[in-house]
Structure formats: C-alpha cells, structure tokens
Amino acid sequence: MREDLFREDPRYKQANKEALLAIGLFALNILWWFAFAYGLGSGPPQEYSYVMGFPAWFFWSVIGGYVVFSFLTWIMVKFFYKDMPLDAATDYHWKPQDRGGKR
C-alpha cells in the first residue's frame, strides 16, 4: 500500500500550528528572561535601581516575566488555539473555522 493513498487527518494541520506556537512562546520567554536578568543585573549591586522594593532586574525578569507570559499564554490559547473533536474517527470534515469540541 502506498503512503500517499490516504488523506492525513485534517485536524493535524491546526494541531501542528498550535505546537509551533507553544515553541515560539517558549523561545520568547527565554529571551525576555535573559534580556532583563542580565541586561539590568550584570552591574555591581551597589548601583542597582529598584522597582517596588525589588532590584530592577528581578522585578522585570522574574515578576514581570511571570505576569507577561501568563498573559501571553492566555492570548495564545484564546485567539490561536481552536476547539476540535478528539475522537479516533476521521470520516467527518472538520475545518479550523468550526467551533465546538463535541460532535
């Protein structure tokens, strides 16, 4: 049997997109974490500036990173992740614009 004789599960295209988005968010997360921690925190501690009592590097990288990336996660899921049925059958014609996780 030849491989090209079957149609790939139509849900996979959207699922792949979502997985790549998660990886992208991960990369962005690392970048944010790195830039603020070492951008603001590499000098001598005597010269640190402070935000709400925390050293600025800590505030932006750790606390800010937590808030910003929790929010971005919500944005990603809310606007880019699509509901779809999960069951094994593939005989229906699901399209990304369809809503609802149940058939």
Binding site: D9, R11, Y12, I23, L25, F26, M84, L86
Partner: peptide, 13 residues
C-alpha cells in the same frame, strides 16, 4: 504550556 501545547492535540487524538 509546553507539555500540553507541544504534545498537544495530536497526542490526545
């Protein structure tokens, strides 16, 4: 977001 996002719906399907 990595575990659920990357294994994602394909793992569940």
């Amino acid at each position: 977001y990595l575990v659920l996002g990357v294994l994602g719906k394909r793992f569940a399907i």
